[in-house]
Design a protein around this nucleic acid. Sequence first.
DNA 1: AACTTCTTACTTTTT
DNA 2: GTAAGAAGTT
Length: 872
Amino acid sequence: MSSFSEDDAFEAAAPPANRPSLSQMAMGARPTPYLEGLNPAQREAVEAMDGPVLMLAGAGTGKTKALTCRIAHLLNTGRARPNEILAVTFTNKAAREMKDRVGAHMGQSVDGVRWLGTFHAICVKQLRRHAELVGLKSNFTILDTDDQIRLLKQLIRAAGMDDKRWPARQLAGLIDGWKNKALTPAKLGAADEAAFDDRGKALYAQYQHRLKELNACDFGDLLLHMVTIFQNHPDLLEQYQRWYKYILVDEYQDTNVAQYMWLRLLAQGHRNICCVGDDDQSIYGWRGAEVGNILRFEKDFPGATVVRLEQNYRSTPHILAAASSVIAANSGRLGKDLWTAEQDGEKVRLIGHWDGEEEARWVGEEIEAMHSGTRARLRKFSLDDQAILVRASHQMRAFEDRFLTIGLPYRVIGGPRFYERLEIRDAMAYFRVVISPEDDLAFERIINVPKRGVGDKAMTDIQVTARTNGVSLKEGARIAAQDGLLKGKAKSGVAQLIAQLDLWRYLYSNRGNEDVISDYDAEISELASKLGVVEAELALMTSKGMNVKEDCAELLLLAEQLKSQIKVLQSYVEYLRSDNDVVLAEIILDESGYTTMWQNDKNPDSPGRLENLKELVKALDAFDNLGGFLEHVALIMDNSNEEHGEKVTIMTLHGAKGLEFPVVFLPGWEEGLFPSQRSMDESGQQGLEEERRLAYVGITRAEEVCTISFAGNRRVYGQWQSQLPSRFIDELPQDHVDILTPPGLYGGGYGAAQSGGFSSEASGAGMSAAFETRVEKADVYNSPGWKRLQQRSQRSGAATNVRSGKGGHMTIDAKAALVFTVGDRVFHQKFGYGQVLEIEGDKLAIDFDHSGEKKLVASFVTPAEKAGDVPF
DNA sequence: AACTTCTTACTTTTT
DNA sequence: GTAAGAAGTT
């Protein structure tokens, strides 16, 4: 792939000739205006240039500023030339921002800092230069998760395993985890070998082998391969150690073992490594990040300068206090005390709702109120200033639904990524086969899309043919079609596809080739003259008074065919004369019938898919060729389609790291959802602490107003479930929290106001009787917070609700649940009256008088005698 | 081979 | 409640 040559030569990294270079500037002592705006801690972090530096930067303490100033300072003082700095980030966005800001400090753009990027992007660059050392060619392809899983599925089936019992996804997860730990199959421990029905190791090895055959690697390999290379080739490593004079790492708390090893190898020599991170914001443990990396930095690099950035420039004191109070419950922290010079500000606001829908409704209204500036004490906020940060993406739906109905503009960030969409992946698979015909995974994906009559049988035949002949799938298909192994539709369909692929490839490799162009031109003029003859004939017929439409149908048809042939050839010429691959992409999508397939599809989302395809082609315009584009897409999976217009942002907490908003809503603070049950099940205490850090990240995103909410009932998997408020709510400091009262029919609900906390007022309101009844009936026995609640109930008697607890923390108590007994008469708002047949967990089997037998969650029915209280 | 209906597992989080 | 996959039908 040609995309790699441009940055090949380290040694020859001459400064750009057309403007004064940074390194030239760096030679002389330059003014350092960027140092002026730094506080003492930041300044220390910038000026401690040599040796290991650990910058512990709490949320909102100007970490990026310090980091970018440091780069600028290194350049400005002549310590390093732009290409001698290795600066690693986790996201493309962070890399972009860093580049921009360094440029701003320096007063010019810094193209020379070519080793500034994500771990993955930098490793690709390195690996392309040394691919042969791990048995790859430098034009290897990078598989995405989808390809990875299909490949693993094949291997699992080939091993004679049931791919239902042993899902490829799970194996992919295991392999990913191993790669994150820099474990090659040979290095797997005994426990890991036994994984996946004792075949984990074997399958992993087979997978790696297959990747090499395909000249491909997955995401994890990018780092793993580089670590392997550096470990096995000390000379090469030394070279890189000399090249990278200064290393900077952003979000160090998120590094996994492989990344850590890679960094350590590179930093070993001069130890000029500066790691920036915040152990309290480590939220990627699930994908292999090791908080331990940051915790033991001082051990790894003895004599390291440790700088703490603790002055927060983002949030009000109340918000900071809330965040600090929550995170304080974690153990094993490096410890930081955030403070701010600000004085005033709104307290963190807390509110409980009846269910998820009401929560969405309330948040919608609140956002509108903020927007129009009608909230007491609060200023007016643009919609762009407001964000809803959820724990899991499925929470977004309730908000989207609500905002659609009230017409509140919103933008969802981090939804299904553009390049992960079906139609985009299909189109890309076509491109991939054209560029590299041996890309079996891509060929397999498109061989029957659109339908070409290739089913299971034909596919197996093709695979067997390919294997016995030792050729790629595409060639296997060619042979199978020629030898008559394929029949009927499959045969013609495959033959046509192969011919088209060959043609597209021919075009692709001959763009700008004048000979080919003149060949096509000649063909066009030949066809044109034929068309001329036919048209003359038709004209003659017409002049003779014949009914052309009826009598000369054949001639007319011929004319039409000629015209379309000419059009096709003209498009080829247009492509061959152009300077990128946009037209080719159009030709491929058009001739393959892929576009037509969606045009004929009557699904309501097909127009959207066609739109996406158009955008894909448009995006190609910015690239020299398809190859470069595919490389870009493999690494840049973010969808930063900047929509314009004022909109509320909806995103996950993970997605929000590094961002800030004046107004933040944090909904769904309920046990099981946040902290996520899965997190706790899989990682126990550690999982819980990571969830807590997520809570900390969430709160610290807020500049002025932070609103936390929870719902008593929520639909999970389409089933209603009663929810308990999150334990994190208990950890909020009461003095810094305002409890708001939910509006609507149910009166106080969880949230009766002010000093009394939730209790008396709400219960006394009468309106909330039904609400309470429902909440009480929730099956708390099975819920994670039950034990906790039970202890509290014993302590505090039978009073329900939230009230101020000792030690200044919020406490939420619940009365022991009213339990139904078999035989109870009950009432349900939709099904009417019935009788309890069976009790199972939180579900009741009920025989309804008019609707028959149903199974429902207990919180949905009330004892029959109380039914009159239900305000529906 | 393609289309239909039915079952099932699924909800974290992403380079 | 959905989306993907299996099983069953044309």
